[in-house]
Design a protein around this nucleic acid. Structure first.
Lengths: 132, 132
DNA sequence: CCGTATCCCCATGGATACTG
DNA sequence: CAGTATCCATGGGGATACGG
């Protein structure tokens, strides 16, 4: 944590923010789902597609490319007919997944509290309470 | 981790995914920045606004409301003139922030590896390397 | 000081069709 | 099987002006 000349705390400005680089990357709609889907072993494109409900071919490809670019996922092509492509976590990707797991655990343990808070807030503010 | 009838691993389907509820909430553009800005003490609206570079009044208000709704942030109004509004982390919010901190640390430690991987990927794919 | 209300741009991402 | 290409709807979020 830093302080500037006025004594104000500074944190996570865009240029020098490490978390923004990573969270912006894996905070999207699909990255974490893919990471965890690969957590216990390599998998093929269409297998991932069927396991991750709701993902489109387009987004699976795109997200896998980004994860590969960041060095979290390794792509291996087996030149057979039809072609087989396997994706698996790199060591870096395993480290990330493990690190994200802490957040997942916390979310699991406190989901009820959060939902309760949401419902209460919505009631107090007279909004619809059809959240999950 | 679950398995379905075909032996395929299932994970994080929308309906029963705890992480989606939380990550979707704090994985946005500003939530984490606000959480960490409040990590070492309460702060006022305009102070937050000036400390979090680039955030608009609209998004600061909106994100604070969501964090308040989830029970991560508490809002206190001091009815003086002009009015003073303070935001601070709840215990739940402190727990979340602490849990996110693991990810932040990991990102800090491995940012160089990630950047290197990105540059290498971009070179190999003949794309512009003007990423940060 | 602390917001709300509007307008509006543009990136995300779904649907669909096509290829090696 | 594993993608790419294209079109297009939705909404996130910036800019601005105004209100208690």
């Amino acid at each position: 944590m830093n302080y500037n000349e006025t004594g104000k705390r500074i944190f996570i400005r865009d240029e020098n923010c490490p978390i923004r680089n990573v969270v912006a990357q894996i905070g999207d709609k699909w990255s974490i789902l893919i990471l965890f889907s690969l957590a216990d072993g390599a998998d093929r494109f269409n297998s991932l597609k069927s396991r991750i409900e709701g993902i489109s071919q387009r987004m699976l490809t795109q997200t896998l490319r980004e994860l590969e670019r960041d060095g979290f996922v390794e792509r291996t092509v087996y030149p057979q007919v039809p072609v087989k492509v396997e994706y698996k976590l790199t060591e870096l990707g395993q480290g990330l997944t493990k690190s994200v797991w802490g957040l997942v655990s916390w979310a699991n343990e406190h989901l009820d509290e959060i939902k309760t808070s949401r419902n209460q807030y919505d009631q107090e503010h007279n909004e619809k309470t059809d959240n999950q």
